[in-house]
Design a protein around this nucleic acid. Structure first.
Length: 161
DNA sequence: GCCAACGTTGGC
DNA sequence: GCCAACGTTGGC
């Protein structure tokens, strides 16, 4: 199954205490390790492509919200932390020859001048149906519709790309 | 810190 | 294959 669609858009959550947009800006690029949810893994494995754009979302933050933009810069490949007994992401049940968990590399693209908070997202009718504003939505990697992506950038006054 | 929502595990 | 128990996420 190959879909000839242009780029896809995503929202990826990170707790700023663990890895914030500042960390990503400093590093330029990072391994998005620690995905341990099958639905998120499937998006990464089946649908993410190099060049896809990502809304960078701070969860467990005050306030939570979108703080910038990142870009997918690798294909999916096995997450090495699943085989590392010292890692908190260690998964002893993942077979070495058929790794259960994958990751992609993410690069910094830009930062918003100000956070676009979850509240703002919820209050804007143009974003009706966006997954992140759905109650109880815990998925840390989620698809975003192109018009929602564009609208969030607009809300941020971001014209970096 | 609380707790609702939801995913995963394991007994049966 | 059901479902209760448990663990985690993440807003508040």
């Amino acid at each position: 199954m190959s879909k000839a669609k242009p780029g896809s858009y995503w929202l990826m959550k990170s707790e700023p205490d663990a890895y914030s947009i500042d960390d990503l800006e400093r590093d330029g690029k990072t391994f998005w390790d620690g995905i341990r949810n099958y639905q998120a893994r499937n998006f990464i494995r089946d649908e993410m492509k190099v060049g896809d754009r990502v809304l960078y979302y701070h969860s467990n933050a005050k306030p939570p919200g979108v703080v910038g933009v990142a870009e997918v810069v690798s294909e999916a490949y096995p997450d090495p932390t699943q085989f590392d007994p010292d890692s908190k992401y260690y998964d002893p049940k993942s077979p070495q020859d058929d790794p259960r968990w994958l990751l992609v590399d993410i690069a910094f693209v830009g930062r918003f001048d100000e956070i676009v908070s979850l509240n703002q997202l919820k209050e804007d009718p143009a974003l009706d149906g966006m997954l992140v504003i759905r109650r109880g939505q815990r998925l840390s990697v989620q698809p975003v519709e192109v018009q929602h992506y564009a609208h969030v950038l607009e809300m941020a006054g971001y014209d970096g790309d």
